[in-house]
Design a protein around this nucleic acid. Structure first.
Length: 269
DNA sequence: GACCAGGTATTGC
DNA sequence: GCAATACATGGT
């Protein structure tokens, strides 16, 4: 019998939008149960009777670790209200997507995955990331494979990466992995460095432009003031959010997720 | 077969 | 500085 851990109220987080919306790429949904690997542990997360449960991590600090991963200790209601006060046009998206949270992913995983993400779509990104994990074959606790550390990725050849569908991004992936390995990019330091400095460091990497840099800052380093602009967001900024100033909010990244999820929900077939 | 996807690097002005 | 273009791949 698997032990399950209660993470708190299910109302706090929209698992579907948060875990399968394109912040991370290793969770999939099966009948309301979200299975995936993060931090080297394979888990199942689901809601029952208004409560949020986790299975698969029986270690001592599992509760704190996964509450942190899902960012359950941040008051998103307050953030949502502040964003709506600043930009009333956000209210529809925020009410529909208000329980999307910004995951606290491992910075290296976010960097690597968002390099893969460029000019690509979410389902395809997921496939490539999964095959990358299989290729490196580093076991996760509880089954499946962990996201490979930079050393493992740097040891791959571009041909191996092309073989799993990376295409022209193969050399970018090697480049960022190498930069982390040889210390020219200190990801850990970027979490506390001034955000402009951190962004500059990321932009110096071959294969990392403004969009990927902001995704790493937001999803990998929890810099909530970052506002990644992809093709969906660009359209929103030219359309129903024309001339908004949300990009400059201290919670710009949260607003970005509301808009991103809202638009994609609307255009879902 | 063209167009698109959580873009970036390169080139030419 | 900014606009145009190539880049791999799989799904509509």
């Amino acid at each position: 019998m698997t032990k399950r851990l209660c993470l708190g109220s299910a109302r706090a987080v929209d698992l579907k939008k948060t875990l399968t919306g394109g912040q991370c790429f290793r969770f999939s949904e099966d009948n309301g149960v979200f299975c995936g690997v993060a931090m080297g542990v394979a888990v199942r997360i689901y809601a029952v009777d208004g409560e949020l449960f986790l299975e698969g991590d029986s270690s001592e600090n599992a509760l704190a670790r996964w509450r942190s991963y899902l960012d359950l200790d941040t008051d998103y209601d307050a953030i949502k209200n502040e964003l709506i006060a600043q930009e009333p046009r956000l209210s529809t998206a925020a009410e529909r997507c208000g329980s999307v949270r910004i995951l606290r992913q491992e910075p290296w995983e976010a960097l690597c995955c968002f390099v893969v993400s460029q000019n690509n779509n979410i389902s395809r990104i997921r496939g490539i990331v999964e095959r990358l994990c299989e290729l490196c074959a580093i076991p996760a606790r509880g089954g499946g494979y962990a996201f490979p550390p930079p050393e493992a990725v740097a040891a791959l050849t571009t041909d191996q990466l092309k073989g799993i569908g990376c295409g022209y991004r193969a050399e970018y992936i090697i480049a960022v992995a190498s930069a982390v390995c040889d210390g020219s990019l200190e990801l850990a330091r970027l979490g506390t460095a001034p955000v402009d400095e951190a962004r500059k460091q990321l932009l110096s990497l071959h294969g990392v432009g403004p969009k990927v840099a902001d995704c790493v800052l937001l999803f990998g380093l929890h810099r909530l003031d970052c506002f990644p602009v992809d093709v969906w967001i660009k359209r929103a900024l030219e359309g129903e959010f024309k001339d908004t100033q949300l990009q400059h909010s201290p919670y710009a990244g949260v607003a970005q997720q509301y808009i991103f999820e809202y638009i994609r929900e609307k255009t879902e077939s």
